[in-house]
Every structure is written in structure tokens, then in C-alpha cells.
Design a protein around this nucleic acid. Sequence first.
DNA 1: CGAATGATATACT
DNA 2: GTATATCATTCGA
Length: 194
Amino acid sequence: MKLPSSFYLEHDACAAGRLLLGKVLVTDLDGGRTAAIISETEAYMGVVDRASHAFAGKRTARNEVMYARGGSAYVYLCYGIHHLFNVVVLDAGIPHAVLIRAVVATEGFAVMQQRRPQAGTTTGGPGTLTQALGIRTVHNGEDLAGHRIWIEDRGIFIPDEAIIVGPRIGVDYAGADAHLPYRYRIAPSHPIKP
DNA sequence: CGAATGATATACT
DNA sequence: GTATATCATTCGA
């Protein structure tokens, strides 16, 4: 069920971004257990990617986790308000990461409601899904092989034709790299079995 | 469309 | 050490 560490070591950010669609992100944090199907991801392809925090090998206290071994969680605060959750892939020293941009909640609705009382809609973006799942910057560097945050394969298969590929969102500062087809999402018409 | 909101990176003294 | 610009966004008008 739980993805093996080899999954994170053997795929680069693009491959992992594609393969993580349909997988289930589970958290067991304060307040209870929640789970959600990953429905949208973005790949950040390391030192050659202008949109990545690790472009040109840049290394700071914030992005240090990107250089950790695949299977680590990279969580950081964006716009002073939102916590964004990434999955680090490939070996230590190679800063590839996959941003989880949207999920479909499957378990722990009561807990999610409690965490986001004002939730008009469901988890529509990268900043709100972390709130629903209870992920905060405290969890930066968390090992996905542990028992607080992990990803499971529950046999949900997403065929290639159900995947919409497009440019990443909110990375205009990256120049030409902003147009790269590194965003993956499950077509809204594609059924997701519970 | 634009304010909110605060850590972080970067460029200074 | 201090100052300032910048965000991998969201929500409400």
C-alpha cells in the first residue's frame, strides 16, 4: 500500500508528478487522520529550472530539504499565508521536487471541517489542501516513510488519456521556463473511484 | 481586480 | 545587523 522509498528515488520530478496522480496522500497529525486522492501536481526539475527554488544550485536554509534524499517532504510558507507541500525525489544532492497542487478528500471530513471552518469549497488549491490535511512548516523535512505523512497506492489507475498536461501556475518570474509542460492534472471528466 | 500577510532572500550599512 | 522587495496564493468585492 504505502509507496516504497524506491518510488521516490527512481523517478525524476516529471515522472513522479505523472505517477502521483491517483495516489492517496494520508496524514495522521493533531486532531486525527485524513486522506485525499492527488488530482493535480507540478514538477520542479532541479538546478536547470528557473521556476525552482533550487535553480542554479541555490542552497538556503529554506530549500535545504530539496537536496535531501527522495521521499522527504518540502513544506514552506508562501505569500505569508499559505503552506505548500512538495515531495522531494531522486537521490540526495539532486533537488527535484513535485508540488501537490490539488487533491480530492476521501477520509476525515470532520477533521478537515474543523481545521478549515470557513471552507466554502473543498480543497481547491495548493494552499488550502495543506490546511485541510493539517500540514504546516513544522513538517518540513518529514520522512514520507514515517507514520505522520505518507502516500499510498490504492490501485487507482489513471490512463494517459485522462491526464491534462499544461504550463505551471504562478511562476511568471521564471521567464521561458514558465511555459514548460510540467503541470499534470486528472481530467475533470475522468471518474475517480473511492 | 486587489488587498492581505509574514517569512525569506538579498543588498546594503 | 538592518532595510526592502519579493513571493510555487486565496478570498472577497
